[in-house]
C-alpha cells in the first residue's frame, strides 16, 4: 500500500502539486492524467524522491518515505523503479550493462566502480531483456537503438531492480503509436504477472482508459478525479484537460486503433464509451 498525505510541492509563486492524498493498494495499475504542466511528473518524481516534497508525506507499507535519508533513500529508489519519457539510458554503454545498472544499489563501491556484475545478475538481466523481446540487442550500444527499443531496455532495467512499484513518467510520449502499444503492453504484463504496482503518467486519455485499473486526474496540481475508468465522464475529462481536450482525445484516437487489446475483458463496455467519446471529440 502506497499512500500520500496532503502531498505538496511549491515553486516560487505557484504550487505544482497541492494537497494530493492518495492510497494505492499493491498490484494496482494506475494512470495519472492531466494536461501538460498539471503536476503529473512532479507527483511521480516526489514518490521516487527525485523531487523533494515541500509539504505532506508519502508512506509505503507503514514506512515514512519522506523522512528517508542517505542509504535508506537509495534503497527506496531501488524499490521504487522509474521509467522516464526520454528513457535516460546511458547511450555509450551497451544494452546489457544499462540493464545491469538496475542492480547498482546492491553493489559495494569497488564492484560498482569496476563494473563487476555476477554471472547470475547477468543471466537475470538477459532474462529481463528477453521478457521484453530485446535479448538480441544485448551487446549493442544503447544509443544505436530506436526510441521504442530504448524504452523497453529501460523497463528491463527497472525489472532487474526487483521493484515493488514501477513509476512511469510519460513512457510513450516520445514514441510512435506502434511502439507505444508495445511499451504499454509490457507495463501491463509486468503489473499482472509480477504483482508490481504501476503508476503511469499518460497524456492521452484513451491509453489510460484502455490499460489502467484506476485513473487519477490532476488539474493545476489539484486532485480532481480518482476512480475507475468507467466513472470518468466526458464532462470530467473536459474539465481535466481544459483547452487541451480536443488534442488529448484526438491523440487518443490514433493509439486506440492499436491499443486496448490487453484489457480485453472490459473491451465491449468500454468500446461503447469510446465511441461516444469520439463523437464528442469530433463535434
Amino acid at each position: 500500500m502506497l499512500t500520500t498525505e496532503k502531498l505538496t510541492k511549491s515553486f516560487k509563486t505557484r504550487n505544482a502539486v497541492s494537497d494530493v492524498s492518495l492510497s494505492i493498494p499493491q498490484g494496482q495499475m494506475v494512470g495519472v492524467i492531466g494536461r501538460s504542466g498539471a503536476g503529473k511528473s512532479t507527483l511521480l518524481r516526489m514518490v521516487n524522491r527525485l523531487a523533494e516534497p515541500t509539504d505532506g508525506s508519502i508512506t509505503f507499507e507503514g514506512k515514512d518515505v519522506t523522512a528517508l535519508r542517505g542509504s535508506a533513500l537509495l534503497e527506496w529508489r531501488a524499490t521504487c523503479a522509474m521509467v522516464f519519457q526520454q528513457f535516460n539510458l546511458v547511450g555509450r554503454l551497451d544494452v546489457v550493462t544499462n540493464v545491469l545498472t538496475g542492480r547498482l544499489y546492491h553493489h559495494g563501491f569497488v564492484a560498482s566502480m569496476l563494473q563487476l556484475f555476477t554471472a547470475s545478475e547477468r543471466a537475470f538481466a538477459i532474462r529481463a531483456l528477453d521478457r521484453l523481446g530485446m535479448a538480441h540487442t544485448a551487446l549493442q550500444q544503447a544509443d544505436t537503438l530506436s526510441g521504442g527499443q530504448m524504452q523497453r531496455v529501460a523497463i528491463a532495467r527497472a525489472l532487474v531492480q526487483e521493484p515493488r512499484i514501477l513509476l512511469a513518467d510519460e513512457p510513450i510520449a516520445s514514441l510512435d503509436p506502434l511502439n507505444a502499444k508495445v511499451v504499454m503492453d509490457a507495463l501491463r504484463t509486468i503489473n499482472r504477472e509480477d504483482g508490481i504496482t504501476v503508476v503511469c503518467n499518460l497524456h492521452t486519455l484513451d491509453t489510460a482508459r484502455s490499460y489502467c485499473d484506476r485513473i487519477i486526474g490532476l488539474k493545476d496540481g489539484v486532485l480532481v478525479f480518482d476512480g475507475t475508468p468507467e466513472k470518468l465522464t466526458q464532462d470530467m475529462a473536459r474539465e481535466i484537460y481544459g483547452a487541451e481536450a480536443d488534442d488529448a482525445f484526438a491523440e487518443g484516437l490514433t493509439s486506440t486503433s492499436l491499443g486496448g487489446e490487453p484489457a480485453k475483458q472490459r473491451l465491449t463496455e468500454r468500446d461503447l464509451a469510446k465511441n461516444a467519446q469520439l463523437g464528442l471529440a469530433a463535434s
Binding site: 554471472a119 547470475s120 547477468r122 543471466a123 538481466a125 538477459i126 551487446l139
Partner: peptide
C-alpha cells in the same frame, strides 16, 4: 539457468 542463458548469449558474460 545461468548455464542456459550463457549458452544462448555467451558474449553478454
Amino acid at each position: 539457468e545461468i548455464a542456459s542463458v550463457r549458452r544462448m548469449h555467451p558474449e553478454a558474460f
